[in-house]
Design a protein around this nucleic acid. Structure first.
Length: 481
RNA sequence: GCCAAGGUGGCAGAAUGGUUAAUGCGACGGACUGCAGAUCCGUUUCUUGGGGGUUCGAUUCCCUCCCUUGGCUCCA
């Protein structure tokens, strides 16, 4: 099995990846609370863990990737009541948007999107188990709390000590809790809000319990990989550990904790509560899915990523176009290539193989996507140098040129937009227009030539004159395509 | 206050105890072009937050200070 290293938040070091039962990998990522439109920060975690799953599968692991959906919590309820909507319908609606966006972004690696409210029996069962084992207590109002004092390891993931949490003045004083740090497992019902029956009276799940109930059911009491945003480490993931390990008596809950860095907007974290969000969907419409993926993968997943409106995605689009163009031309040329065409030099063949090996190594070293991208750019320069020969190259030679891009296509999920253009049914039509323009140019009628070019441009077809004739391409697909 | 992450050229953003610190965007000049675009060639800019230490040698290791961000409240 491929040697893979990844950084584990718990041990704070890069460790060799060893799933419990290779080649199977149980992977869980904290998904959204869909009470509003997703923003650019959400796109980051989605792409990051999509690449993790893709890469592991590429290396032969059989990954079962679960991304939960917190379809009911305080925020969903609050927003729904503001809108006069049903909370579960509201979150279902926003989840559909999320799924649509993920599909548009070429994210198909998630096997299951479990809804919190579909796991109420498992949640009740886990709370009951925690109660039996003495980790939970009932409050007077019918809520159930986790008793943090019973779980000494609480704080290990985040490096926090319970005593120092006390100093944080922001913990609300709540008379119902034994310790201020205790968190709610089962929230007593409020009239008008969704609730379920339970041994403790009607209520609904607390925020943290759904994840461990879901993973307990789907991945077992112990599994391999848990991912999420850096901002979830405390208290959310800390609480997950306390719940799962408390209920099962088994430790550790997960072998590897992966956390992605946050998207920053003018020096601050982009978040709904700060109101400094940029809509993911409109970025997708304006720039297209591939430039967006490129933008995320152009940084290491653990680093903070600075987003500058009117700049970051524009630059990403330019850069991505440069990466995509040579591959698109290889693909176009291969439509009409023959097996007996020219071959590449041995040096180039070797280099193609070497680059694929290197970028594969980069990914296996804690997913250094930026390194892989930089090497693809170097390769692109070499490919462009051969461009004049494309039409004469053999099928095999073109495949060799395409190999690094194909690797990126399957592991990084880039270049899903490459096939559009030459070779499609539009080709004969566009060629006729190009020929007409060519005649106009020959006789010096540049006004007519430019008119033809402009009209095609208006239809999204771009012409470029080169030494070997005129080439055409479709504008990069936009929106959900 | 406590915990954690980060400070690299105009911008984004890599990397390494040791030749000229990637890559891309941008800018400038040149080639090519009827023009445009793309491409190619060249140029542009960082002595890697400040200070100290370890070392033959540090951007990379250690200490300290400053600054930024995140977490301690919902949050990818």
């Amino acid at each position: 099995m491929r040697r893979v290293q990844l950084y584990d938040t718990m041990s704070r070091e890069t460790r060799l990846f060893q799933p419990r039962f290779p080649p199977r990998v149980g992977m869980f990522v904290c998904g959204l609370t869909p009470y509003d439109e997703p923003h650019l920060g959400h796109g980051r975690f989605a792409v990051v863990f999509d690449v993790v799953a893709r890469a592991l599968r590429h290396w032969g692991y059989r990954v079962f990737y679960v991304q939960n959906v917190t379809n009911l919590d305080d925020k969903v309820i609050r927003r729904a009541s503001e809108l006069g909507a049903d909370p579960l319908e509201l979150s279902a609606q926003h989840f559909r948007t999320w799924r649509r966006i993920q599909a548009a972004m070429n994210i198909e690696s998630v096997d299951l999107y479990p809804f919190a409210t579909d796991y109420v029996p498992e949640i009740r069962e886990q709370i009951a188990e925690l109660e039996r084992r003495g980790f939970a207590y009932r409050a007077d109002d019918g809520s159930v709390y986790y008793d943090i004092r019973r779980f000494p390891a609480y704080g290990r993931l985040s490096g926090q000590k319970i005593e120092s949490l006390r100093a944080g003045a922001r913990i609300e004083v709540d008379r119902r809790k034994r310790s201020p740090e205790d968190f709610v497992l089962w929230k007593a019902a409020t009239p008008g809000e969704p609730s379920w029956e339970s041994p403790w009276g009607p209520g609904r799940p607390g925020w943290h319990i759904e994840d461990t109930a879901i993973t307990g059911r789907l991945l077992g009491p112990q599994y391999d990989l848990h991912g999420g945003g850096l901002d979830l480490i405390f208290p959310h993931h800390e609480a997950e550990i306390a719940q799962a390990e408390g209920a099962s008596g088994l430790s550790p809950l997960v072998q590897y904790w992966m956390h992605n860095g946050l998207l920053m907007m003018s020096g601050e974290k982009m978040s709904k509560s700060l109101g400094n969000v940029a809509s993911l969907e409109s970025a997708l419409e304006k720039f297209g899915a591939m430039p967006l993926r490129f933008y995320y993968l152009n940084a290491h997943y653990r680093s903070p990523l600075d987003f500058t409106p009117g700049e970051s995605l524009e630059a990403a689009r330019e850069a991505y176009d440069r990466l995509r163009a040579p591959y698109a031309r290889i693909v176009a040329a291969s439509h009409s290539a023959s097996p007996s065409g020219e071959e590449l030099s041995e040096t180039l063949v070797a280099e193609s193989g070497r680059i694929v090996g290197e970028i594969d190594d980069d990914l296996a070293d804690d997913f250094r996507t930026r390194e892989a991208v930089a090497k693809l750019f170097v390769w692109s320069r070499k490919v462009f140098e051969l461009e004049d020969r494309f039409s004469r190259l053999s099928v095999g030679a073109l495949e060799t040129l395409a190999a690094p891009y194909e690797w990126a296509e399957s592991v990084l999920g880039l270049f899903a937009d490459v096939d559009a253009g030459a070779g499609t049914s539009l080709d004969p039509v566009v060629r006729a227009a190009i020929a007409a323009r060519g005649r106009a140019r020959t006789r010096g009628d540049f006004a007519e030539a430019d008119r033809i070019r402009d009209e095609l441009a208006a239809a999204g077809i771009r012409l470029e004159d080169g030494s070997d004739g005129t080439r055409w391409s479709l504008e990069a697909p936009r929106g959900a395509g």
